[in-house]
Design a protein around this nucleic acid. Structure first.
Lengths: 101, 101
DNA sequence: ATATTATATCAAAATAATTTGATATGTTTT
DNA sequence: AAAACATATCAAATTATTTTGATATAATAT
């Protein structure tokens, strides 16, 4: 059973799956942003944004860089692509299975 | 702001993001299965599996087909691919952004 | 018709995630 | 050194999800 690997991906998917977090990810696709940019853009509180950024950071989906008193966040495409490849693998397997009879 | 579309994908990602549900999805990649196959395979209770299948079904990630007293589930690849394309689009945008200076 | 099997649904309990408000930490400005 | 600013963290409250146990529905077998 492939449960362990699947568990890893379930964790990444969970991090992606919040409304706020997925919007942050989309926003970061347009380039690196500091925390204050993000909470002003979405009009939500600073601590709430920091909390969600923390979840994304710990899951490895984004990277942080400190500059003065600001912290800049950006996407970690590599890990996002790991998710897409995992899902694409499932779709692929299914398509192959269909051919086996 | 692309919030509405993002919300749709957040919903799909949430459906994918449970440990049990992602394992079911992986299992269904090997072919159509009835409910009893699934709960025997994972050694969890019937009602729990039915509950998670319900979430996957309502999100459109799997399809059901009734045959006699059994219900068979299979992947709906189209919707899984929508997720991968969405994520791949984010990665793509980020990669393009990097080239703009 | 009754019993059995397969699945779904419901309500309650247990657990987890999100949000809010307050405070701490570190950096810059004065 | 004090004030101001940017961010993170913590605890409590709120809300959502998961799990369990019980029951309902529908198909088949006896």
């Amino acid at each position: 059973m492939n449960t362990f690997q699947t568990q890893q991906f379930a964790r990444l998917l969970k991090a992606l799956s919040g409304d706020i977090r997925l919007n942050i990810i989309s926003y970061l696709a347009t380039g690196e942003k500091c925390v204050c940019h993000i909470y002003e853009y979405f009009k939500i509180s600073q601590n709430l944004v920091s909390h969600h950024l923390g979840i994304l950071r710990e899951s490895g989906l984004i990277k942080d860089r400190k500059d003065g008193k600001r912290v800049y966040y950006s996407l970690n495409e590599q890990n996002i692509e790991k998710v897409t490849h995992f899902l694409q693998g499932i779709v692929q397997k299914k398509k192959e299975e269909r051919g086996t009879w």
